[in-house]
Design a protein around this nucleic acid. Structure first.
Lengths: 184, 184
DNA sequence: CAGATCATGTAATTTGTTACATGATTGT
DNA sequence: ACAATCATGTAACAAATTACATGATCTG
């Protein structure tokens, strides 16, 4: 297994919780991880093949009359080992890419209003995410003591809450600075 | 030109400010953009070739006795147009990937102390960055009114400051929650 | 004198994205 | 009736990383 393909570990991590189809995995990523991770079908299906060929997951086919055939994957003991091993190594390098900052860094090339527009669009994209985090947080607070699983999910939500809040604070301050510059 | 290769625009943006060699571009990215963007030589040199073949930049060779030959690139008028055009289109999709959250999301698989260790490593990595942002901010505050360039760079630094602060706040809160869970 | 910096690039590999291909069922 | 959801995958392409290859000069 390529030592660095994170997608493989995302899949192992999800399967460690419960068996799933590729389609389920995609849905789960979109609903629970998408604010800090994503993956398309074009990565998921081939990755499942790789994991199976290395004995880290097994598959079982569920044929139904009404619905398409489902291929349900389960993690193996070897897969769990592999996952734990990865989880216990330090994160090597974490490079984030913010296209909004790239645009703004070269902002001098454009009229001020254009840059304000970019910031405004950024605000729209993230306002909703922030509110989603608050919602998640509320839901999780109630059931936090029920399972260790919820605890860790709660921590990721908390991260999201704080970071989205930082984005929104920045939007206000940055807009203010640009508007002041336009006048002054 | 591939309509979506950001690296090409990063280079155009930097060359719009002043002419540079590939090596200079790498240094500039590492020193000024690395907290929100990165690029390796393996991307930069081939990209310069692409930009030149499309007439967006021109090159000039500087031969020296003591130092290696430098190939200095300058942006063309057509390159400036291309850059402005890109800058004035909205950001389409901004997906960030936080490996720390991926590890933590699956935290149940490991003993609690291991997860605290991951968070602690994250803290170390980001503490220094936060301080760098404060330093940058201080330096820029003094010269903010001198050029519109500084203004936009200031905005990106402000973003960095707020986001790194959010990271550090989260570290404290998350660590507290985990420690409390360990005791309670 | 050793390691960092200056300075260029190519080639191979790995990852990720997008488009294509198919088709039934369920909900509005 | 029309769109969304369920469900599988492949192929082509684009982007990014890593390793390789070379060699002089400057700094501690």
């Amino acid at each position: 297994m390529a030592k660095d393909n994170k997608t493989l570990y995302v899949i192992l991590g999800l399967l460690a919780h419960e068996e799933m189809t590729g389609y389920d995995i995609k849905k789960r990523i979109d609903s629970s991880l998408s604010f800090f991770w994503d993956a398309g079908f074009g990565q998921i299906y081939p990755s499942l093949g790789v994991l199976e060929s290395e004995g880290l997951v097994t598959k079982r086919t569920e044929v139904s009359e009404k619905r398409p055939t489902r291929i349900v994957y389960s993690i193996t003991e070897s897969g769990r080992q592999k996952l734990k091993q990865w989880l216990s190594t330090p994160v090597e390098k974490e490079s984030v890419r913010y296209e909004i900052l790239l645009r703004l860094f070269f902002g001098k090339q454009l009229p001020l209003e254009e840059n304000i527009k970019r910031i405004d669009e950024f605000k729209s994209r993230n306002q909703a995410s922030y509110e989603t985090m608050l919602q998640f947080k509320k839901e999780l607070s109630g059931i936090l003591s029920q399972s260790e699983d919820h605890l860790y999910i709660y921590l990721t939500v908390l991260f999201g809450e704080k970071v989205y809040k930082a984005y929104l604070d920045w939007v206000e301050e940055a807009t203010g600075i640009l508007e002041q510059y336009a006048d002054g």
